[in-house]
Structures are given as C-alpha cells and as structure tokens.
Computed example of a mutant assay.
Amino acid sequence: MEHPSIIFKIVCPDRPGLVSLLTSWISNYGGNIKHSDHHTDQDAGLFLSRIEWNSNNESLNRDEIYKEFEKIADAVNGQFNVNYSDEIPNVAIFVSKQNHCLIDLLWRVRNGELKMKVPLIISNHSHLENIANDFSAKFVHIDTFKTDKTVVEDQFLNLLKEYDIDLVVLAKYMQILSDSFLKKFSSIINIHHSFLPAFKGGQPYHRAWKRGVKLIGATAHYVTEDLDEGPIIEQCTVNVSHRDEVDDLIRKGRDIERIALARAVRLHLNHQVFVYNSKTAVFD
C-alpha cells in the first residue's frame, strides 16, 4: 500500500547548502521526491522551500518525521510545517446573499477538485439555506444586523470549534470581521471583487466603471486586521470596454471571482502558499 505524500515547507535565513541538507535527509530516510521547489528572497535574505515526497519505508512514523524536521529547522533557524496528502480539512464557508462562489466551491468539492469537507455554512441572510441542504452542509443563519457584533462573533467561534474547522472561506460574505475575532481565528481566505490594491472597499465595479477602466479583476487573499490588505494568493482579470455598463462588469466579475477563489483555496489546501513579510510566494 502506497503511503500518502509528505509535504515539507520551511522558511529560514538563506545560506549555502540548504537544498542539499534537506534533500539528503529525505534520501537517507528512503524518500522519493515528487516535487521540489525553492526560492530565495534576496531582499529579505530568506530561503523558502517546499518538498513533496513519498517514503519507501514499510511504516510511516509521522511523529518521527516531525521531530527530525524540527531538528533541521532548529539548526537553520527556520519555521516549518509538515503535512500529508491524505489530510482532509474541515472548511466553513461564510456567505451573504450572492450564491455564485458558494455553489462553485461546493460543486468542486463534490466533483473531487477540492480536497476538503464543508460541514458548516454560516450566513447573515437566510437566502442560501437550500443550497447548503443540497450539499448536506449545516446552514446557520445569524442575524448580524439585530445582534451585537461581539455576541455574533462569539457564536461564530463556538461553531468553528464545534465543527472542528481548520479554514474559513469568505465566499462573498459582505461583513467585516473584527480584530478581536481575527486574533482568535486567523486562517481565513476572502474573495474581493477588484484587482487589489485598486478599488479597495465597497462597490469596486461601480467605481471602476466611472473611471472607464479597460480591465477588471478579482483577488483572493488571506484576511488580516487591515481591510483588503491581506497577503494575496491569486488574482484573475478580464477585459471590459466602453460598451459595458456596471451590470456587465458585475456579470463578468462573477466569473473571475469564482475562478480566483477556487484557485486560492486549492493552493492553500495543497500547501503551496508561503506567507512572509505581509506577502506570499506561491509554488504552483
């Protein structure tokens, strides 16, 4: 029986011999490397590495592997993660009224394109409950307009804990999460309907139309305390013209919002994203 792939990621100060150090240990452990990606950020003086490999050993001792990589990381003053290809995280999707990103993500999960489970969908409107039912996800409607924000976010946190959620995806959730919430749960991906850093905030398509832009975009990024400033994972664009009205920009935007968000979630699930110095390196 073939073991799952082991995915090792590390960020550390750059120095000669790091690739040899990492790959030699994997080889000595009986590993066969499937993918090996490295990058040096010369300005930051950092080395980034993602190595995906299989072990030829009869038994796979995950604790032993973690401890050995921990020793290597300590020796090079690095930060590391070890993950496995058979890990299926629990993901909660937050939505408001728009359904296009939600339906697209759920369809990709059902079709096997996204390796995740979606046990929980949270919304500040009740409109999309039927979609959650169709995909056997628990739908929770919490009225964010009539309830104090602190109370609402405490309910969010309790639900995330109850359903053992690893990642939250804001699939057109049109509310701002507080700094307090983000300090308690920070693994969140958002889709913003503009090519950031242009047109941050609300109604970006309306503002883009008024400026007569010839290109609009969608940006999937990690959520931070600074609105629409989080590290960018994926961006998509589409051409527009003087013949397009605001509704045309919104229609075209929905298409690229779906694509950008799905790509970002997939990259995150595959452990292909490095976040450092308020930006990302994506090994795709």
Rank of each mutant, 00 (worst) to 15 (best):
L160I: 01
K172H: 08
N239Q: 06
C236D: 13
V282C: 06
E153T: 01
S241G: 11
R15G: 06
P197F: 04
H141G: 02
D164T: 05
N90C: 14
K117I: 03
I65K: 00
Q272M: 12
T147L: 14
N32W: 02
N158P: 02
V91R: 00
Y173K: 01
D164L: 05
Q235Y: 11
L106I: 10
S180K: 07
K210L: 14
L102K: 06
K172N: 08
I216P: 09
G112E: 05
H242L: 01
R15I: 12
K183V: 05
E129T: 00
V95H: 00
F47C: 11
M174W: 00
E225K: 09
N90W: 00
K97T: 02
I191K: 01
E229P: 01
I7S: 11
L21K: 15
D14G: 02
R251F: 02
H193T: 13
R243E: 15
W107N: 12
G202S: 11
I191W: 08
H38S: 15
N54F: 05
V273Y: 13
F8K: 10
A171E: 08
L167N: 02
L21P: 05
N190W: 07
R266F: 03
K97G: 09
V19A: 11
K252P: 07
D166P: 03
E52P: 09
N239M: 14
L22A: 10
I88M: 07
L167A: 07
